[in-house]
C-alpha cells in the first residue's frame, strides 16, 4: 500500500487520488461518524474494499453494519469523516430485504431489466450464472427467499459492477443453500475481478470465501483475515465464548495453503490487511500465526 491515509473531516465525496487510499482501492471510508436521532451508530469507522477482494462485515443486530454499507453506497451522509469512491465506480447492490408486493405484477425478467439492460441473451447468461436459468417468466412474488436473492444478485451483475455490496445475503436460506451461495459469491469475484462487501450476522460459514473480516460494534472491534479475527480476544468478547468458539471456517481446497507451521493462510498474502487503523492487534496476531 502506497502513501498513507490522509485524515480529513469532509462529508463530500472526494475526488482524491488513488495514492491516498491505496492502489486498487474501490471505496474507502475513513473516520466516519454517523448519528441517527442523537444516537451514535458509527463511531469513527474506517473500511477499504479493493479490486478482487471480499470484505465481510460481521456484528450483532444494531452494530451499524447496514449503516456502514449504506454509507459506502452513498445512501447515508455521514456527520463527519471521509467517503472516497473510485471515479465512476459502478456498484451492484443487493439489499437485505426485498419484500415483493403481490399488488405489483413483476416477472423476474422485467425485474432484471429495471436496471436498464434489455438484451435477452445477456439476461439468460446472467440467470445461468446465478444458477436460476428457468425463472425469467416467473412472478417474483412466487420466488422463495433464496431464489429471490439470486435474482437480485443477477440484477446487480447485469451492471458489470466493479463493486458488489451484499447485505445479509444468507438470511432465510438453509445451511446448504448458504454454502452454495458463498461459493457462488467467491466464483463471481474470481470471474469478474470485482470487489465484494458482504454483510452478515451469521457467524457460521461467514468466512468461507472472505479475504478480510471486519467485526463491527458501532466501532471497529477487530479486523483481519478470518483466522486472525477468530483468534482475536475482542471477537470473543463481542460474541461470547460459546458462539465465538463455534465459528467454523469452511474453506474450499483451492482457497488456502498451509504454512510450514501447519496454519491456514490465504493463497495471496499480498491481499492481507496491512494498513488500516485499529487493526494493529489483528495484524500482529496474523504475523504470529503465520510464522
Amino acid at each position: 500500500m502506497q502513501g498513507k491515509l490522509v485524515a480529513m473531516t469532509m462529508v463530500e465525496e472526494q475526488e482524491a487520488g488513488e495514492e491516498d487510499v491505496g492502489v486498487g482501492a474501490l471505496v474507502a471510508v475513513e473516520d466516519v461518524v454517523v448519528d441517527f436521532a442523537g444516537d451514535r451508530v458509527l463511531d469513527h469507522v474506517g473500511l477499504t474494499v479493493s479490486v478482487g477482494e471480499i470484505v465481510t462485515l460481521i456484528g450483532r443486530n444494531g452494530s451499524g453494519k447496514t449503516t456502514l454499507a449504506r454509507t459506502v453506497l452513498g445512501l447515508v451522509k455521514p456527520k463527519s469523516g471521509r467517503v472516497w469512491r473510485r471515479r465512476g465506480l459502478c456498484i451492484g447492490y443487493v439489499p437485505q430485504a426485498l419484500a415483493p408486493d403481490p399488488i405489483l405484477p413483476m416477472t423476474a425478467s422485467r425485474f432484471l431489466t429495471l436496471g436498464g439492460t434489455a438484451d435477452p441473451e445477456r439476461l439468460n447468461d446472467v440467470l445461468d450464472e446465478v444458477g436460476m436459468p428457468d425463472v425469467a417468466d416467473r412472478q417474483i412474488v412466487g420466488l422463495s427467499g433464496g431464489e429471490l436473492r439470486r435474482v437480485m444478485l443477477a440484477r446487480a451483475l447485469l451492471r458489470d459492477p466493479e463493486l458488489l455490496v451484499l447485505d445479509e445475503p444468507m438470511s432465510g436460506i438453509d445451511v446448504s443453500g448458504q454454502v452454495a451461495l458463498y461459493k457462488l459469491i467467491g466464483e463471481i469475484r474470481d470471474r469478474h475481478r470485482c470487489g465484494v462487501l458482504l454483510i452478515s450476522h451469521d457467524l457460521h460459514l461467514v468466512m468461507a470465501e472472505t479475504d478480510q473480516v471486519v467485526c463491527l460494534d458501532r466501532h471497529v472491534c477487530c479486523r483481519g483475515t478470518p483466522e486472525v479475527v477468530v483468534a482475536d480476544p475482542a471477537f470473543h468478547t463481542l460474541f461470547g465464548p460459546t458462539l465465538g468458539d463455534a465459528v467454523a471456517i469452511y474453506r474450499h481446497e483451492h482457497d488456502h495453503r498451509h504454512t510450514e507451521a501447519g496454519a491456514v493462510a490465504p493463497l495471496d498474502e499480498g491481499r492481507e490487511d496491512t494498513g488500516h487503523p485499529g487493526s494493529s492487534a489483528g495484524v500482529a496476531a496474523a504475523e504470529t500465526s503465520r510464522s
Binding site: L73, G74, L75, P95, L98, L104, L114, M152
Partner: peptide
Amino acid sequence: WRPLLSATVHADIAAVE
C-alpha cells in the same frame, strides 16, 4: 416510467443504479 417503477420496487437499488 422506468426510473419511477425502479424506485417503486426498491428505492435504494434504484438510487445505487
